[in-house]
């Protein structure tokens, strides 16, 4: 099948709404965290504090966009762009609903994996270019963490691929008409979930920034709009991750009564809220714990899941 490209309005619409959603997530996250911590969160700027994002943005724009004299200038500027762009292009393969999406091609899933791994460059480069020991440590942690968890992420979704027989995300969704993969692939789902959190460097697995240990890790030296790009990049990452989880394990746009796009958005929203809940509730593991857990537990478990799925698929269809 030839890759099909959505039309221009689709592309612009999707990108715009994704960015707006990511930006609004800043407000959503603060409000939700506040809710769970028995506070109110931002509620002053605009109705319900919704304009907080605008206010923050204005502030960010007017902040001095400072590049430390000791930094590697170009790399320093490049790093936040990378995360922003990779995350954004990741959305290209997301099947929002039948007929809604930017591109539809056979290796959608691989494309997603490739882009998430690319995004780690942004962390490594930021850490290197800042020429600051905390930033460098953050960058190193980021690199090691991403490289490790990518392995488990890849392995964990192989079960899904086996069951659906395709790397095409739309076909994977279609394959779930008879039942979401969350059921047969529960173990795979868990591993994928953890790996995705690690990949997007969200709390509790935000070791590259780890404020309590590394000041602000790889973005210690960043301020103004460049910091803003990292920030929005992170929320893009959450949105992208939720969308993928929904696609792979929760039947994508499938659902009764409501239009498919609404189902997709709803499910993605719940995914996002879950991400925020994770941040609100769980403490950060130590760095060595994270690595040990990955290699000693997730890897065998992933392989087990792969073997078992393979066996079952063989038994049923072979």
């Amino acid at each position: 099948m030839k890759p099909a490209l959505g039309d221009a309005t689709d592309i612009i619409g999707i990108l715009a709404s994704v960015i707006i959603v990511a930006a609004m997530l800043i407000w959503v996250e603060r409000r939700l965290l506040a809710l769970w911590q028995d506070r109110l969160g931002p509620n002053r700027v605009g109705p319900l504090g919704l304009m907080q994002v605008m206010a923050d943005m204005i502030k960010m724009f007017f902040k001095e966009d400072w590049i430390p004299p000791f930094a590697d200038r170009w790399v320093f500027v490049l790093a936040p762009c990378i995360v922003f762009i990779t995350m954004l292009t990741g959305f290209a393969v997301i099947p929002f609903a039948p007929g809604v999406g930017i591109i539809d091609f056979n290796f959608g899933l691989l494309y997603f994996l490739a882009l998430t791994s690319l995004s780690v460059y942004s962390i490594v480069l930021a850490g290197y270019a800042s020429n600051n020991k905390y930033a460098l440590l953050g960058g190193l942690r980021g690199a090691a963490q991403t490289v490790s968890y990518e392995v488990f992420m890849g392995i964990s979704i192989m079960g899904v691929v086996m069951l659906s027989g395709s790397f095409n995300l739309r076909e994977i969704v279609e394959a779930q008409r008879d039942g979401w993969f969350i059921g047969p692939q529960f173990l795979g789902f868990l591993i994928f979930l953890i790996a995705v959190v690690a990949e997007s460097r969200r709390a509790p697995l935000d070791l590259p920034e780890a404020e309590q240990e590394l000041v602000a890790g790889f973005h210690t030296e960043y301020s103004g709009m460049k910091f803003g790009m990292f920030f929005v990049g992170e929320y893009l990452g959450i949105t992208l991750s939720s969308a993928i989880i929904v696609t792979l394990f929760f039947g994508g746009w499938l659902g009764p009564w409501l239009p498919p796009l609404v189902w997709f958005c709803l499910k993605t929203a719940i995914g996002i809220i879950f991400f925020i809940l994770l941040r609100g509730a769980l403490p950060r593991p130590r760095y060595d714990q994270l690595m040990t857990f990955g290699w000693k537990f997730l890897l065998p478990a992933g392989l087990l899941n792969l073997l078992a799925t393979g066996a079952v698929v063989l038994a049923l269809h072979g």
Partner: peptide, 18 residues
Amino acid sequence: QLRSLWEVLKHTFVKADT
């Protein structure tokens, strides 16, 4: 960990102290 998640989630229905 799951328990923490649940405990925190329960706070959705607790009144804010602010």
